[in-house]
């Protein structure tokens, strides 16, 4: 675990995996994975995705949770390129109550902190749709710099839309503590949601 201001980064254990069966079919997931075709993700797909990320030597799927232990979503670094020390940064709030919250911003800051201050990366890439105001605001507040627009690059809901491209260099990162000190992060104060029932528990109950 790495403790942040509003959230903690934790291994993506079974409790997160149960939520992911829902999260991977929701808007926040697809806005963090723009290349995907919006195929419905079955339990099997979710399991395969987690297994792939667990084996991935150039990326990781990391859970983030509120200080009360409630799982909120995931941060992901992917396609790490060791020679130039860069990777793609992705984040999403699976629990839609937290969409646009400072918890999600803190999770992104924690991902940046982990990539620069622990993994010694030089640069992070990030991407957002031009109309995804919430994501654009998180990237801006985290310090990402807009580096250009891939014009009409992907198919999205009946149209070909742009992709806004961002980058953040380690030299532009003041350090997690200094960054947080300038942001006045505020907790949402949401109550923990009920835990989803585990499959084997359901079976036991029915028997």
């Amino acid at each position: 675990m790495i403790e942040g201001t509003l959230v903690d980064l934790v291994p993506f254990e079974d409790d997160f995996a149960l939520y992911l069966e829902t999260w991977m079919n929701e808007e926040a997931w697809f806005r963090a994975h723009l290349w995907e075709r919006r195929e419905p993700h079955t339990e099997h797909d979710v399991k395969k995705y987690i297994e792939r990320m667990e084996k991935d030597e150039r990326g990781a799927l990391i859970g983030f949770q509120a200080k009360n232990g409630d799982p909120i979503g995931a941060v992901i670094f992917d396609h790490e390129w060791p020679r130039v020390r860069k990777a793609e940064a992705r984040f999403f709030a699976g629990d839609s109550r937290y969409e646009g919250s400072d918890e999600v911003l803190d999770a992104l800051l924690m991902l940046v902190r982990y990539c620069f201050e622990t993994r010694n990366l030089h640069r992070l890439d990030a991407v957002a749709l031009p109309f995804d105001e919430v994501r654009l605001e998180h990237l801006r507040r985290a310090g990402f710099v807009h580096e250009g627009t891939l014009r009409q690059h992907i198919r999205w809901d009946g149209d070909y839309v742009d992709m806004e491209m961002f980058g953040l260099l380690d030299s532009e990162w003041p350090g997690y503590a200094a960054k947080v000190a300038g942001l006045d992060l505020q907790p949402s104060g949401l109550e923990p949601k009920p835990r989803p029932e585990k499959k084997d528990e359901k079976k036991d109950g029915a028997g």
Binding site: R123, E147, G148, R151, H153, L169
Partner: peptide, 22 residues
């Protein structure tokens, strides 16, 4: 020229940008 990814290429010890053209 659509995107300039700053300092994302390293050649003989010097940082360069990757450029995306569309």
């Amino acid at each position: 020229l659509e995107v300039r990814q700053r300092q994302s290429a390293l050649a003989d010890g010097v940082w360069y940008d990757w450029l995306a053209y569309g």
